[in-house]
Amino acid sequence: MPAAKTFKVIGHRTINAVWRIGMAARFFFLTLMYSGSSFRRFHLTVKELFSTGVMSLIIIIVAGLFVGMVLGLQGYETLKRYGSESALGSMVALSLVRELGPVVAALLFASRAGSAMTAEIGLMKATEQISAMEMMAVNPIARIVAPRFWAGVISMPLLAAMFSAVGVFGGYLVGVVQIGVDEGSFWSQMQAAVDFRDDILNGVMKSFVFGTAVTVIALFEGYDAPPTAEGVSGATTRTVVTSSLVILMLDFVLTAIMFRGN
């Protein structure tokens, strides 16, 4: 019976997916529960801030600059048709602060820092480092997972803010310095259009949520990876794919909640 087989496959997949979501949620709560030492011994978190935050700086800054410059070019081309080139500043800033900053920074973060986290923890598991830690009566969630989690949650909004700031500068470079849009109206239109609470704080909130989601996915995939070479590489791929999808879905939900009616 091919039909019965199809249903069986669908059922199996669904049960599996739900089971994994449950495991991930449990993992997330355990991480929160054992987060004490990440703050009591903050140097553990600082070490991870270096490998997640500082190491992602270059890609974030370069990508932000180019995205901003492209926005400047494309925005100018479009706005010119309606004779409103002076709105370039507000267009660049709003796109970056509301959407592109948090989303693109999170996507880059997922592929730069998230995949590294998964691979590192997966390998730790494959080489029995996590079992060794457990046998030494040290809780691996408190010692390995939680500091990485908090490092991700702290660095994501900072990276997104840098992405947006550099992007605005890129838009300024192309729009004002190269094309010659009036500098005064570029900045004043921008300031008139961008609201601190509605746009900037909401953007920060978004990147905070994305940071949480990406690090939880990356850490869970690593912790859950089969202890083999294929297992770890598969988990790394899944981290990037799942977190990218989750970022985009969460972005829709958050945008619908935050910017509805304005």
């Binding site: 590192e120 390998l123 730790m124 080489t127 029995e128 480092q129 079992s131 060794a132 830690m133 457990e134 046998m135 030494m136 009566a137 040290v138 809780n139």
Partner: peptide
Amino acid sequence: YRMRRKMGMLFQFGALFTDMTVFDNVAF
């Protein structure tokens, strides 16, 4: 965990923490 502090276990391939120096491994 109290019991495990009184135990030591050597894993098959050593399972040294690859992100720490030899000193930090022993001091862990």
